[in-house]
Simulated assay, not measured.
Amino acid sequence: MSDDPNKVVTPAKLKKRFRILLGVSLALNLMVIGAVVGVISKGPGRQGGGPGMRETAFPYVGAFDRADKRAMRQEMRARLSYRSEARAAHQASYRAFLELLRAETFDAAAASSVMSAQFERAQRLQTIGRELSIQRISDMSVEKRAAYADRLEYRLDNPKKRGKRKDR
């Protein structure tokens, strides 16, 4: 008797069904968006695409011994004393980019400017890291440089074997 075709569906039941359908649709949309963002943020897989900055720098940095890494980290912090300010500027530029995305008309020039400023801040960090690395290697003795070369070669030949956490 519950399948009576003459039964009237009240607006409250329609409203409830609509809410459920809307909730399921929203959940599916968020899953798809999350998957797309995850794929984009993870970057290219082994099948193709060029290496990112992290993949390029990681073997060089990882091949330094623990003491050198600690010393370089301290030098980076000393040279980047404005770190919290840079982080705040980075967050502000993300917010500005979001506003550009949500605007009625998209201002491509302004969006490019926001991204360029972010990339310039990142490039400054990379430049300092590269300078510190080259200086540290220049200061090494021939034996230490050969040991560094061996560790670097091992990391390049065995990218999945990074050593124990305590050794990093």
Rank of each mutant, 00 (worst) to 15 (best):
K42D: 11
A88P: 01
D68L: 07
S93G: 09
L22W: 15
L100Y: 00
L125W: 05
I134F: 09
A67W: 05
V37S: 09
K160M: 11
A27V: 10
G129D: 04
L101Y: 13
A111P: 03
R130S: 01
Q123V: 02
S81R: 08
G62C: 11
L22N: 14
A78W: 08
A147H: 05
F64M: 06
V9F: 12
A89Y: 01
V61K: 00
P59E: 00
D157V: 10
K69F: 00
I33T: 15
L101S: 12
M31R: 05
R46N: 13
G50Q: 03
L21I: 15
A147K: 05
D3T: 05
P59S: 03
L156P: 00
M76P: 04
K161H: 09
L80D: 01
K161A: 09
A35S: 15
D65V: 07
P5K: 06
I20E: 06
G45K: 03
L21S: 12
S116Y: 09
I128M: 05
M140E: 02
A88M: 11
A122Y: 03
H90S: 10
F119K: 03
Y154Q: 13
K7Q: 15
A110H: 03
K160D: 13
E131V: 08
V114S: 03
R95F: 06
A108R: 10
L98D: 11
A89Q: 02
Q135K: 10
D139R: 11
Y148C: 04
Y94N: 13
